[in-house]
């Protein structure tokens, strides 16, 4: 790993200042960034740790739904979101392993936008708002393909706000080695319709399965998607699963998520 200057600000304002340094990169839980740096695939000159900023921590109900500070670890979300948004808590409790969940954060996951990460599915299916040090970004506008987001140079996430659906579930099928999502589906039923977001499957990163959303909005039952087919054209094909297999998983897991939705 290349060496770097380590900075740990204690306020958002200080973090904004630190991030304005040439070559600066934010560090949250580091559960993806550190392995990447060990492989020398990332080599920041200045690393700005966001884990010492109290304003970026915590889970609470507020305007627009459930507010989660960007530097809140998965384990905390799993515990503290349970009463408000059980599907989201369950998702957080299934990321990585216990030790990873104690360090990894929602902001880090959403900023990285790994095509097999869990949180992007929740953000997109919930129609959440990504709040940064400089603006608010709707989920639809935020995700722009794998590892690509609307974040600008030096911009960092401070909070994610989740509207609470009437019922929801996240069903994840593990890639057997990494335990990231080989494919996973988040189904969220709101008063004005159902949203279905899929992660792990597409070459374009997290996406909404709109045909299923229409069918489920009309009839929120697993059988409602029985007649649909998922095109495999844009699906990821790798040694863990072919495109056709992933397309199958999208449908199977969507059905299971509908059945499991609470």
């Amino acid at each position: 790993m290349h060496n770097f200057e380590f900075v740990k600000p204690s306020s958002i304002a200080d973090a904004v200042a630190a991030m304005s340094t040439e070559g600066a990169q934010p560090l949250s839980g580091g559960q993806t960034l550190l392995p990447t740096m060990k492989q020398r695939l990332a080599a920041p000159e200045v690393l700005v740790s966001l884990t010492g900023i109290a304003e970026l921590q915590g889970v609470c109900m507020g305007e627009g739904g459930l507010h989660i500070g960007a530097a809140t670890p998965h384990a905390v979300v799993a515990r503290e979101a349970l009463a408000h948004y059980p599907a989201l808590a369950s998702l957080a409790g299934g990321i990585g392993d216990p030790a990873v969940r104690n360090r990894g954060t929602i902001g880090g996951s959403v900023a990285n936008n790994d095509p097999a990460a869990c949180y992007p599915a929740a953000v997109l299916a919930s129609g959440a708002t990504v709040v940064t040090d400089r603006r608010r970004i709707a989920a639809e506008d935020y995700f722009q393909g794998m590892f690509t987001t609307a974040l600008e140079e030096g911009e960092f996430i401070t909070q994610v706000i989740f509207p609470i659906p009437q019922a929801a579930a996240y069903v994840k099928f593990n890639q057997p080695a990494s335990r990231f999502a080989l494919t996973a589906v988040f189904v969220a039923k709101f008063a004005d319709g159902v949203r279905v977001a899929v992660t792990g499957a597409s070459n374009n990163g997290v996406f909404r399965w709109e045909e299923a959303e229409a069918a489920l909005s009309a009839d929120f039952a697993a059988g409602a998607i029985a007649g649909l087919t998922v095109p495999s054209d844009d699906m990821i094909s790798d040694l863990h699963g072919s495109a056709a297999y992933r397309a199958n998983l999208v449908k199977v897991l969507t059905g299971r998520a509908v059945t499991a939705a609470r």
């Binding site: 099928f173 057997p176 080989l182 863990h240 699963g241 072919s242 297999y245 199958n248």
Partner: peptide, 8 residues
């Protein structure tokens, strides 16, 4: 006998 192979 991975999921992908068994399903295929």
């Amino acid at each position: 006998v991975s999921p992908n192979r068994v399903w295929q």
